[in-house]
Amino acid sequence: MKSQEKFFTRKMAPQTSARMVETIFGCKWSLTVYHLLENGINRPGEMVRSVDGLSTKVLNQCLKRNVDFGILDKVEYNEIPPRVEYTITEFGEKFVGVLAQISALQEDIDAQQSQNHN
């Protein structure tokens, strides 16, 4: 009689998405950028003026990283003076949704830890 055992392969963490989440949470301005975009602020100069402590250099690095990941789309207009706008891509909407779930999970963890300490 043959055994009905099932063999499973080792489950691996999703490397690319895990790196994206780590990189985005590691960038202290990405979540702020998403919030600005959700509120209709999509031009870099306006973003810098809207947030204390945000420099043009750091913002440009943050925006480039997000464009490289496919979270944001950069639209360059052929105008003088030059105009650039950023939008959240369809993939970016999904990604931002995942970040919101992670934030909600953290709130649950914080609440649970608060209850355990009381």
Rank of each mutant, 00 (worst) to 15 (best):
F69N: 08
S55L: 04
S55Y: 06
D110K: 13
M47I: 13
Q112S: 14
Q106P: 06
I41Y: 01
Q115L: 15
R49L: 12
I24A: 04
Q115E: 10
Q101A: 11
Q113N: 14
R10H: 05
S50H: 04
G70E: 03
V98F: 02
T32Q: 06
T56M: 14
T56I: 09
V33G: 00
N39R: 10
L105N: 06
D73N: 12
F8C: 05
K28T: 11
E93Q: 13
E46T: 10
V51Y: 05
G40I: 04
M20S: 08
E79K: 03
Q4S: 07
N66E: 14
S103R: 12
E76H: 06
G45Y: 01
E76W: 02
F91I: 05
D68T: 05
G40H: 00
Q61A: 13
T16Q: 14
K57F: 13
T16H: 09
T9L: 08
E5D: 12
Q115P: 03
E93F: 05
K11F: 12
I88C: 04
G53I: 04
K6Q: 07
H117F: 13
L63K: 08
N118C: 08
D52Y: 12
R43K: 15
F69R: 07
T89G: 03
S3D: 14
P14M: 02
E38N: 13
E38G: 13
M47N: 01
Q4L: 15
E107T: 14
K28C: 08
C27M: 13
P81A: 00
R43C: 15
V48F: 04
V58R: 10
G40L: 02
T16W: 08
Q106W: 10
E76K: 14
L36N: 04
D52S: 12
F8H: 10
G92W: 01
K6D: 11
W29L: 04
N42C: 15
V98M: 02
E46D: 15
D73Y: 10
D108T: 13
V75S: 09
D110N: 15
I109F: 12
R49Y: 09
A18Q: 10
H117L: 15
V67M: 06
F8L: 15
V98Y: 03
E22S: 11
Y86I: 03
L72Y: 00
S3W: 00
Q113S: 12
T9A: 11
K94E: 11
M1L: 07
R65A: 15
V84E: 09
A100I: 07
E90P: 04
L59W: 07
I88R: 02
V51K: 05
G53D: 03
M1T: 09
G26R: 01
R10T: 15
E79Q: 09
F95D: 01
K2G: 09
V58F: 10
H35A: 11
G97R: 00
Q101N: 13
Q101S: 05
L36D: 02
P81V: 00
I71M: 00
Q4G: 10
E85K: 09
P14Y: 06
C62Q: 05
E76S: 11
E46Q: 11
D52R: 14
S3M: 10
N66V: 03
C62F: 03
V48N: 05
G45F: 04
E85A: 14
E85W: 03
